[in-house]
Amino acid sequence: MHGPASPGWLLVALCAATGAYCLLRMRSSVEDQRRSAGGEALMGFGMAAMAVPAAVYSPPAWAWPAYAAVFGAASLRALWVARRSPHHLHHLVGTVSMVYMAVVMARSPGHHGLHGGTGTPLVTGALLLYFTGFVLLSGMRLVPAAAVAGGGGPAGGSGGEPGGGPGGAATWGDRPELARACRLSMGIGMVAMLLTL
């Protein structure tokens, strides 16, 4: 590990891989997964771009307002969806967090990726608290899902049905535990990025 560049590249890789998996989830036969996968892919790739170390690439001044506009539009869409499906409120918090980070980066020229800006401590702290809680809860939810997927479940469980299809027929892109792991990865990435503000 050489300074802040190594953690920056690890975060870029994590977020880009998560975004790529979310793109594949857009081909799912499950409508709810398709609906949320596009927004999660946008989040993953946006976070990857924000995390690129400044020593490698420093974006032009117009990039941060562009990020804020894109994720502002995504926030409006997430608000519209959450109106009917309250469980999508997490997407709204994520997109608003991206707008906040873009505004902080725009106010701090010369700071990029894992180099701290000058965020508002109250807002940053509230978002850190939310995403830390989200990561811990998501991690706890993955433990039983992994145990069931391993086939060791008690009491007559058919160990091969994580995706809901008969006999475990769901494709790997439809598996709910992989979607949870995807959201967990983005939550971890968000915590890492907020810690630098």
Score class of each variant (00 low, 15 high):
M101C: 06
W64C: 07
G38P: 01
G94C: 13
F45C: 01
F45T: 00
Y130I: 06
V99F: 02
E161Y: 00
G46I: 06
A155K: 14
V148Y: 09
T132F: 13
Q33Y: 11
R77N: 06
G44L: 01
Q33I: 14
M190Y: 02
L136N: 01
A68I: 13
A106W: 15
H90E: 13
A51E: 01
G133K: 03
A49L: 15
L197M: 11
A145L: 10
A55S: 14
W62R: 08
A147D: 03
P4L: 07
M1L: 10
P121I: 07
M98T: 11
G189F: 02
A55L: 07
A48T: 07
R35D: 05
Y57L: 14
R107Q: 13
L197N: 11
H112L: 04
P59K: 04
A102D: 10
S138R: 08
M50Q: 14
H111Q: 15
G133F: 02
F71Q: 03
V143N: 09
T124R: 11
G116N: 01
G19K: 00
M140H: 05
G72W: 03
M98N: 04
L178M: 12
A41M: 03
R77W: 12
C22E: 12
H2W: 06
R35L: 14
G133A: 07
M26F: 07
G163K: 04
A66E: 01
V12N: 04
A181K: 00
G125Q: 06
G119A: 10
G153E: 11
A61P: 09
P4K: 05
G151N: 09
R35I: 07
A5Y: 03
A51V: 02
T171W: 13
M190A: 14
L184I: 02
M193S: 06
A82K: 03
H90I: 09
H115A: 13
P59E: 04
C22F: 07
M26A: 15
A126P: 03
A13R: 05
A37G: 04
L142R: 01
A37Q: 02
V52K: 07
M105R: 15
G38D: 00
A169D: 12
G139Q: 02
P121V: 07
R84T: 12
E31A: 15
A49D: 04
L178S: 05
A63G: 00
V99D: 05
L129Q: 02
V143L: 15
R77D: 05
G19T: 01
A68W: 10
A69T: 09
D32G: 11
A16W: 06
A192T: 06
F71I: 03
P65I: 12
F131D: 08
M98S: 10
A149I: 00
A106K: 04
M101N: 03
A73F: 08
A16S: 09
H90N: 10
A54P: 04
R27M: 08
T171F: 10
P109F: 08
A68V: 13
A126D: 02
G39P: 05
G187E: 10
H87T: 13
L127H: 02
P154Q: 04
S158V: 14
Y57V: 11
P121E: 08
F131M: 10
H91Q: 11
V148L: 08
R180C: 06
P4C: 00
V148A: 11
S29P: 00
G150A: 13
V93D: 05
T132N: 11
L76V: 14
A63E: 01
V123G: 05
Y57I: 06
P7G: 12
A61Q: 11
V93I: 12
S36G: 15
